[in-house]
Design a binder for these strands. Structure first.
Lengths: 324, 324
DNA sequence: CACCGTATTGGAAACGTTTCAACGTTTTTT
DNA sequence: AAAAAACGTTGAAACGTTTCCAATACGGTG
């Protein structure tokens, strides 16, 4: 594998000159530039990016730390994040924490050692304190404090819209269905917005929540349907699309048809729910915009800029499907 | 940021000794080890992984190069690949090529420059020739030649099983529905298996295919339903689950109910199709096993081992849903 | 022709680590 | 008690780049 030194030798110039040619530094006579380029071509020389990163004491690697790329919302997010990073000349490292706090910390340590340029994180932990160095971080949907800028959708308004739309669709008794993973999650605002609007409209409502871990098994829904005050609920706002889809399924087993007997609205707006039948009505997070904004903000932080806001809230949109 | 030198100084030992302590080299007296560890703790020293990679001329970064993490099958795959890599002490870099040959080559160049330890690729291009260095590569579902080991599901048998199951479900005239992205794709074997078995069983069949790019718009299905020889088709084998789901949708618009009027089987076995209604019957690729095997094989290649096979085919399974 | 200023160029130092030959110290063997 | 062997340790070299300072070349000016 030829190095810059070999190129310099063959071209009959110094290594500094070769470096300048590679980096398009203007102070090189064009005749010299030609010679060097010829030598590069002849030797099939490829600059060693690792050596460069080492020397420069910085890299162009950004880590995306999330619970699981498996989840459709995260994979859509990751797609746009990677795309934007690539446009900006950065690379993406993917870290699945499984939502486990210990694994998040383990990854954070590793990213430290590897001197990544920045981190975009969707974490359980308050990483504000646990990250020991000054790697720039953007947090999605989790608000910890000043140091870590948060990008999120406008959850509160989303919750309000959800209620409004359920009412418009004819619901008279509604419930909020939630799984929450982190104490710091902005997701609780979906509930607040929903509740506040329910009070304003004078609609009867209830809430039913569990932690992430539990909702894989069926007891979550069994309990829901067994509780007496959930009788006659005819409007459901689930805080993710996947949860909404599961609800619809379980409701059917309990003899409730959607949307005839119960209206359902989800949250996220993942692409695959266009394939669900009935098509899910949802509060759509603008995932592409959130992804691109996260990257842009992170890069500004990497450049050393101070950001003007601590939280960036991106507007949401109601997307009607067939469940309302 | 303290370096190994600072640690050595504080501990009153040579840098080589510190290095051996960090790397758990046995030839260090325990009293020395203590001193060094104390110094490490005091200085809050973190080994610089970038410098280490540079010196060692190798990294523990593996790249996953695929069309789009957006696709549920790929995101499931990525999840397990990341998990297995992490277990083995490696990291994952994610590259979405968008299925565009030029972008694949661009990424390949970049990975070269960045001296990744290995690549797991799902590509359009025959990367056997275009990759200029000897970075180990595992290719998923694409078979190019000896240099690049291929991991794939048993597509041929999958195609045969699909036909058998359609017949069992009562289909009498069947069609293969396909989108193919790469000339090198092993996916064509799904068709071959399907056809061969149809001939064996003496079932009337036809095939209908397009390239990846086209199937997003509706003309794909319009044409399908308009062709006279597709009249009375009552069994469909689509070569991906997503395609099957879209077919079912369009069929409904054409007055065909699934499974009453037409039986449908997909391929992949992505998790979300449990949420489709009706639940899709499918030929399930063992995605976790494929992911873990790809990683293990890649690591063996990285260690310099020669692999015994050029293609590793992993058995598939029929998973019955509600569309047959 | 001497001088100056500017445009190019060369090459050494530095980044933080591993490794290895050489050296120093302790233990074992004779 | 000396020699040999085993064990620990040191510090310099090397990995491939960038950057900076000094050196050189070249053109123009007085």
């Amino acid at each position: 594998m030829p190095s810059i030194k070999d190129v310099a030798e063959l071209a009959g110039v110094g290594v500094g000159t070769v470096s300048r040619v590679i980096n398009n530094h203007p102070a090189v006579k064009s005749v010299t530039r030609e010679k060097v380029n010829a030598a590069i071509k002849e030797l099939n020389y490829i600059p060693n990016e690792v050596a460069r990163n080492f020397k420069m004491q910085k890299s162009t690697m950004v880590a995306l730390l999330l619970p699981s790329i498996w989840h459709p919302f995260f994979s859509e997010l990751a797609f746009y994040i990677e795309d934007q990073l690539d446009r900006e000349g950065y690379k993406l490292m993917l870290c699945n924490s499984g939502g486990r706090p210990d694994k998040e910390l383990y990854y954070l340590d590793m990213l430290n050692q590897n001197k990544v340029a920045g981190i975009i994180g969707i974490t359980y932990n308050d990483i504000e304190d646990s990250v020991r160095t000054d790697i720039p971080i953007i947090s999605l949907d989790r608000h910890f404090g000043k140091k870590i800028t948060c990008v999120t959708s406008d959850n509160y308004t989303g919750g309000r819209i959800a209620l409004q739309e359920l009412v418009k669709a004819g619901a008279t008794k509604v419930a909020y269905l939630g799984v929450t993973s982190s104490a710091y999650s902005e997701v609780v605002l979906r509930k607040s917005g929903f509740i506040d609007e329910a009070k304003i409209q004078g609609i009867e409502f209830s809430t039913y929540e569990e932690h992430d871990e539990v909702y894989e098994d069926d007891s979550f829904f069994e309990n829901f349907f067994n509780l007496p005050h959930h009788q006659n609920v005819n409007g459901i706002f689930a805080n993710t699309d996947l949860l909404a889809a599961k609800y619809i399924d379980k409701a059917k087993l309990n003899g409730l048809r959607t949307p005839e007997d119960v209206k359902v609205i989800g949250y996220d707006g993942i692409q695959v729910n266009k394939l669900f039948r009935p098509i899910l009505s949802t509060i759509r997070q603008p995932v592409e915009e959130m992804a691109r904004m996260s990257v842009k903000l992170l890069l500004r932080k990497i450049e050393g800029e101070m950001l003007e806001q601590e939280i960036y809230r991106i507007p949401v949109m109601y997307r009607r499907g067939e469940t309302t």
